[in-house]
Every structure is written in structure tokens, then in C-alpha cells.
């Protein structure tokens, strides 16, 4: 995490500040020194998370936006009109808040500035302490590293691995992600399509890469929404015409392509059994 963000956040919290901490990766909204909302281009917004699975029909969402959006009281409107229970609203809102905050507080999120007095249109649900948000973001970063230490997978469109058909089937939720891994959808797009928090999608992608269903060796996209072929197993679809293939520095020689994933999995299981 950037050394500047935590200290700036702590100062803002101590002063009981109200406003928005804005970075390249998104914004964190504070009210009286506590975090009340977060949003990031990398994470589906609260509107997507509330409407995606049909839980809240989109016409009800629009109605709430029209009626309460200008007053920044959408949360209150949804509660008062019985659209969601207090518990469900809280659960979904916290889920969106921590999801976006993870990206806002990314170590490479760029410089931060604070816009005093900015208020988010969704309205206050359950404020969370700055320290809690930071701690959870750090825990999430560690969690991903522990699953499969290849952070570049968070940004590039995932690509299926060639011999994955021989592997055991994956859980349903991971299969949804795998179905969208076509070398064109970025993790953020997959999350938005599935209406799930982006971090959950990153977890699934790391797990799928660790189990050999997805390529680990993929190169970074040249621009938003594009993928490039990396190893011999990568899919070339979506690569812009004429673009040179860039490779990530990778610690293993090319023979990594031939490593038997099943053997690796058995080795890992055996090692874990001795922990």
C-alpha cells in the first residue's frame, strides 16, 4: 500500500472529515471520519450488485434513483419502501464498500487528493472505521497472494488453459467465471457480468489458475478490454491486429508449459497434509 494513503486516511479520520478521497483507482467516501462508501472502476457498483440477480428489479432501482438520488438518500428510500430489509441492505452495501475499497487502496493506486464535503448519492448505511477498511484490504491482498502469487492475473483477461479438460470439474461459481474466460473479458468485466463483487472474481481466477484451468502466463493487456497471446497455450483471440506480443518477466523457463498440474496438485496436497 502506498505509504501516503494510510497516513492521510488516519489524519482524515482523526479530524472527523467528510468528503471523498480520490485516486486513479476510485474513491473512498468519508462521513465524520468513517468510511461510508467506496467505488472503483474495477468493481461493480452497488446498483449492479443490487439488481444483477433480479433481487431488486431495475425499475425499482430507477424509481429509487429518481426519487431519492438528488437528495443522496437512496439507501433510506429502499428501506422505507420495503424494497430490502435492513440486514440485506447492510450486507450488500458492506460487500460493495469493501470490494471497491480494496482497489482504491491498491499500492499502485497513484496520488490521493481529498474533496472536502463530497457526499455519495447512495446515502449512509453502516459506517466502517478507516482502520477496519485498511486491515481488510491488506488481508485480501495477502489472501490472493497465498492462493496463487501472480498479481498480474488481477488485471489481464483470463485465458483458459489448453489441457484443462483433463482436470477435475470446478465448483459452480468458479465454472461461471471459467465460462467467461475467453481472453477478452477482464476480471472487472466478468464481475460486472456476473453481478458479483470484483474481489470474489479475483479469488476465483487465482484458484482456477492454481488448479491449472487458467493460464498463469498471460501478458498484460495493451489497452482496456484487449488480451494478447502469451505462451503457446494462450488464446490469440482479442489481440489487436499488428500489436507486438509483450511478455511478462516470468521466473520459469518455457518448460513450465509442460509441467503436469496433477502431479503439482498432489505434491501441494501432500505438503499441506504435513502442515
Amino acid at each position: 500500500m502506498s505509504p501516503h494513503v494510510p497516513s492521510m486516511l488516519v489524519r482524515l479520520a482523526e479530524r472527523g472529515a467528510t468528503g471523498a478521497l480520490i485516486r486513479d483507482t476510485g474513491a473512498l467516501y468519508l462521513a465524520d471520519g468513517a468510511v461510508v462508501h467506496a467505488e472503483s472502476p474495477a468493481a461493480p457498483g452497488i446498483d449492479v450488485l443490487l439488481t444483477a440477480d433480479g433481487r431488486l428489479p431495475s425499475e425499482q432501482w430507477r424509481e429509487a434513483m429518481d426519487a431519492a438520488g438528488p437528495h443522496c438518500r437512496i439507501a433510506r428510500y429502499l428501506l422505507d419502501h420495503g424494497r430490502l430489509s435492513g440486514a440485506e441492505l447492510e450486507i450488500r452495501h458492506l460487500s460493495a464498500l469493501y470490494d471497491a475499497a480494496y482497489f482504491v487502496l491498491a499500492p499502485d493506486g497513484g496520488p490521493s487528493r481529498f474533496r472536502h464535503g463530497a457526499v455519495h448519492w447512495f446515502g449512509r448505511v453502516r459506517p466502517v472505521g478507516v482502520a477496519d477498511v485498511e486491515r481488510e484490504s491488506r488481508r485480501r491482498r495477502r489472501y490472493l497472494t497465498d492462493l496463487w502469487p501472480h498479481a498480474h492475473l488481477d488485471a489481464v483477461p483470463p485465458v483458459r488453459r489448453r489441457h484443462a479438460a483433463r482436470l477435475p470439474p470446478v465448483p459452480r461459481r468458479q465454472q461461471d467465471v471459467l465460462d467467461l474466460a475467453d481472453g477478452r473479458h477482464t476480471p472487472a468485466l466478468i464481475a460486472a457480468k456476473l453481478g458479483r463483487p470484483a474481489f470474489h472474481t479475483l479469488v476465483d481466477i487465482r484458484r482456477l489458475a492454481a488448479s491449472g484451468h487458467l493460464e498463469t502466463r498471460t501478458s498484460p493487456p495493451p489497452g482496456p478490454g484487449h488480451a494478447e497471446a502469451a505462451g503457446p497455450g494462450a488464446v490469440a483471440a482479442g489481440a489487436p491486429r499488428g500489436a507486438a506480443v509483450r511478455r511478462l518477466p516470468f521466473p520459469f523457463p518455457d518448460t513450465a508449459e509442460d509441467v503436469d498440474v496433477v502431479v503439482l496438485r498432489r505434491l501441494r496436497d501432500a505438503l499441506e497434509a504435513h502442515l
Binding site: I91, R140, R173
Partner: peptide, 11 residues
């Protein structure tokens, strides 16, 4: 605790 089991976070 009320827990989200994909992220492992206690809500």
C-alpha cells in the same frame, strides 16, 4: 460471526 465465504471476511 456473519461471514462471506468467498472473501473470508466477517461482515
Amino acid at each position: 460471526a456473519l461471514v462471506d465465504y468467498t472473501s473470508g471476511m466477517a461482515l
